[in-house]
Structures are given as structure tokens and as C-alpha cells.
Simulated scan of single mutants.
Amino acid sequence: MSKENWINEKCKEIEQQRKHAPQTMYRNIEEITGKRTFLSTGCIKAMNGYIIIDKEKILERWAEYIRELFKDDRKDHNIMKNNFAGLPIMKEEVETAIKKMKHGKATGPDNISVELIEALEDFGIGKVTDLLNEIYDTGQIPTDLSKSIFIALPKKPGATDVNYTEQSVS
């Protein structure tokens, strides 16, 4: 089989895998393009410039960096005003918002994906609507909804400085 035929076959496979097997699709794309993923070096620099190789210390450094990056000096920033005058959130609005969300994304701390809410159909949309209206009416945001997960993605292979990475938020 010629290289051109092989590439054409791989492209057809990729098109079929787009919706049903995205991880396999990305592997096939990397195989065709020759791009390889690079692993981290397993070390980063401390604020003083010294290299850290201990996993616990690395995690502490990342936590320190994220806290500084997203420092919030506002007072009472977790408290919303009560909604005494506004209209309640309608089920149709929630359904429209859920339909616009991207599929295949990582879940948050609650492990609830968009696909799960969609699979629950009317029941799931009703529960989400009830939760949003409760938040809207009381001004109290559940702790789980105020948590974020950060994944550091090096911009270049072997990056050791936390300032030279992108943060992906889920």
C-alpha cells in the first residue's frame, strides 16, 4: 500500500472516530502528523530559583503559584445578594444552555458530565433548574460549585518554570 493510500485510510478512520472514539482519533492524528507528546521533566523551580524534585514540594509550589495567580482580596466575594425581585430561571433556559455545552470535557469535583445531565433528560434538567433557582433565591453557592481543578500544561517540553505553562481550568 502506498503512503498516500495509507494516509487516506487513516483519514477515513479519523472521521469515523471523531464522535465515538476521540482518544483514538487523536492518537491517529499524531501518528499521521508525526507529532509526539512530551512528558514533563518531573521538576520545577522554587520561587528562589532552586530546582524542586520532591513530589510533595512540587505540589506545594503549584498551590502557591495558583493562589498568587488568582489572589482575591475582595471581602465577602462568596456571598451573592438574594433575588427578591427577579423572575425564576426557566427550565427551557437551562435546557438551551446545556445543549450549547461542549461534549467530551472533563468533569469537575462532582463527576457530573454534560452527557450525564442530557441522558437524564427532563428529570436532570429539572434538578439542575431547581438547584440554580435555589442558588439564585438564597444567594448561597454550594462549596462544590466554587472549587476548580487546575492542570498545568507545559508550553514547551521540559519547562521547569511555572510561569511558562498554561493553566487549563475544569
Rank of each mutant, 00 (worst) to 15 (best):
T37Y: 09
Q16P: 04
Q16G: 06
M80I: 13
A21P: 03
A97C: 12
L131S: 00
I151D: 08
E166F: 11
H103P: 06
R74C: 08
K81I: 12
A85C: 13
T107W: 06
A106D: 08
Q23S: 08
A119Y: 13
S168D: 10
G86C: 13
N133L: 00
G126K: 02
V162Q: 00
G49T: 11
Y164W: 08
Y164T: 10
F38N: 05
D54N: 15
E30I: 05
E93S: 06
L153F: 09
A97E: 08
K81L: 15
K3P: 04
E4F: 07
K99G: 10
L59H: 13
K12F: 07
E60V: 05
A46S: 14
Q16I: 10
H103A: 13
F123V: 12
H77P: 14
K147C: 02
G49Y: 12
H77G: 07
D76L: 05
P157D: 09
D137S: 13
V94H: 00
Y26R: 09
S146R: 15
Q167S: 10
S170E: 08
G158N: 04
R67F: 09
D144E: 14
D161I: 04
V128G: 01
P88E: 12
G124S: 01
L153R: 09
N48M: 06
A159I: 02
Q17P: 05
E134T: 14
A119K: 13
D110E: 02
L39N: 11
F150R: 01
T33I: 03
I32Y: 02
I117S: 00
G86R: 14
I53E: 12
C11S: 10
K12R: 11
V114A: 09
E13M: 00
Y164I: 08
I89C: 05
E30K: 09
A21L: 05
P142S: 04
K102M: 10
T129I: 03
E15I: 09
K91F: 01
S148I: 02
D76W: 03
R67H: 12
Q140Y: 14
P22G: 06
F70Q: 12
R67T: 07
G49F: 11
L59P: 04
T96H: 03
A97K: 06
I89R: 01
R36C: 04
D137C: 11
K55S: 07
Q17A: 13
E68V: 09
I135H: 03
H77S: 13
K57C: 09
I98N: 02
I7L: 04
R61E: 15
L145T: 01
D72Q: 05
K105P: 01
N82V: 15
Q23I: 06
I149F: 04
E166C: 11
L116T: 02
I66R: 02
E60P: 02
T37W: 07
I112M: 12
A46T: 06
M80L: 15
A152L: 15
D110T: 00
H20C: 10
I141C: 01
E60N: 12
S168F: 11
N83K: 08
D161T: 06
S2G: 15
I29T: 02
K45Y: 11
P109M: 04
K81W: 10
D76G: 03
M1E: 07
R61I: 07
Y50V: 14
E60D: 13
C11E: 07
M80T: 09
H77N: 11
I151R: 14
V94R: 00
T41S: 15
L131V: 00
E166A: 10
R61C: 14
T33F: 05
P22K: 07
R36M: 04
E30T: 06
G42M: 03
P157I: 06
T107V: 10
L69P: 03
